[in-house]
Amino acid sequence: MEFGPRQEILLPVKPGFITFSLVTGFLLNLLPTGGFLHWILPDFVAMILLYWCIHQPLKIGIGAAWIFGILMDVADATLFGEHALAYSMMAFIALAFRRRVTMLKLDHQFTHITLIVLVMQIIVVLIGLVSRDIFIGWAYFLGSLTAGLLWPALTYLLKLPQRPRSDPDRI
């Protein structure tokens, strides 16, 4: 396996952009979906939280993940704490593995991202099983695969505002 992605010098990220991206992810999660799309779409809030936990651990961490989990709990009308617990666990794993993930090239990050999102989903499913005795079927876990597949696109998009405009020597 090749290591060492192309090192980039990036501009500092604006806190406003982080909030904006998370709110956008929340909006995407609220989109009314049905049938096939419902199973295949990833949890966008989880993905964006994951991105910021890996790339800006000082700004977004377990606390922010927990707060967005609570918001998702209200939006999805699940028990308070269900998504909150899953997201904060996910944030913790992301913080623990962030150096490893950033060492890898973008297309090699697939396994890590998929597994981290999968752990989050397993927690949600376990809480559902314990509290309501319902198993929702294996198709639910497709979301973590799509999360892994969409990860490079998400990384590209979220990094855009941090890219220097052009050669700073030229005006």
């Binding site: 961490g61 377990i62 606390g63 927990w66 028990l79 704490g81 904060s88 913790f92 809480i127």
Partner: peptide
Amino acid sequence: SPAARLTFFTLLSLLLLVSDAHYKYLGTLR
């Protein structure tokens, strides 16, 4: 540390889960 934070938020989540599942205190918050 992250572990301390995780413990704190996990406990908080569990507390919320139990109280939401068994008692209906959190209606106003929701």
